[in-house]
């Protein structure tokens, strides 16, 4: 009985919320084919939310399979209660979070994922700041968000690859003239 689901969901044994991506998850890759060494680049528009009500604290974001010493320099969380529209941070904006005016103090997510057909929209945008530190191209296959939820720890893998190409290094697939 559906009412029983609600009762069960409110039991003391209810698991802690998990951080998830809402929508059609899948692997994507984005490459900036011409980057400046040491220049900060922003990657935003990554929506995350909770699979049930509660709160999680994001403790870190790290790239997966990083090459060229690609690292997350800083990250920000921005709550949204409407569609992104034009307000999300794009991919590869050549700015730092500070230059873009994005505050970095918030470290918690409380927005609960809503069904696709719901009129209610709520999620948190994750924005990453990174750069290419060396003379070679740098890349990652995705990133992992680490968080705590109640007494437990969790990790959300986001399979969004980022490649920052160096002018003289075309070894990575997205840095070549054709993929």
């Amino acid at each position: 009985m559906l009412a029983a689901a609600g009762c069960a969901g409110e039991s003391p044994l209810r698991p802690a919320p998990k951080l998830v991506e809402p929508g059609d998850t899948g692997r994507q890759s984005f490459g900036l084919r011409l980057t400046t060494r040491g220049m900060p680049y922003l990657f935003g528009g990554f929506s995350v939310c909770l699979n049930r009500s509660g709160v999680v604290s994001v403790t870190g974001v790290e790239f997966e399979d990083a090459t060229g010493d690609l690292r997350v320099q800083a990250f920000a969380l921005r709550p949204f209660y409407r569609a992104f529209g034009d307000d999300g941070v794009g991919w590869g904006e050549p700015k730092s979070l500070k230059q873009r005016g994005v505050p970095t103090a918030l470290r918690t997510v409380t927005q609960v994922c809503q069904p696709d057909d719901s009129s209610r929209v709520e999620f948190t945008e994750l924005v990453l700041q990174t750069s290419r530190p060396g003379a070679v191209s740098a890349s990652s296959s995705g990133f992992v968000i680490s968080y705590t939820s109640g007494a437990s720890e969790g990790r959300l893998r986001v399979p969004f690859g980022i490649t920052l190409c160096a002018p003289a290094d075309k070894t990575l697939p997205l840095c070549q003239s054709q993929t």
């Binding site: 890759s29 984005f30 569609a83 590869g92 993929t179």
Partner: peptide, 21 residues
């Protein structure tokens, strides 16, 4: 489509979508 739009810079960006529904 207007739900969200992202700017891709000319001659400098490439986007691929795979392993998706």
């Amino acid at each position: 489509l207007k739900a969200q739009c992202i700017t891709l810079y000319a001659n400098s960006s490439v986007w691929e979508k795979d392993q998706a529904r």
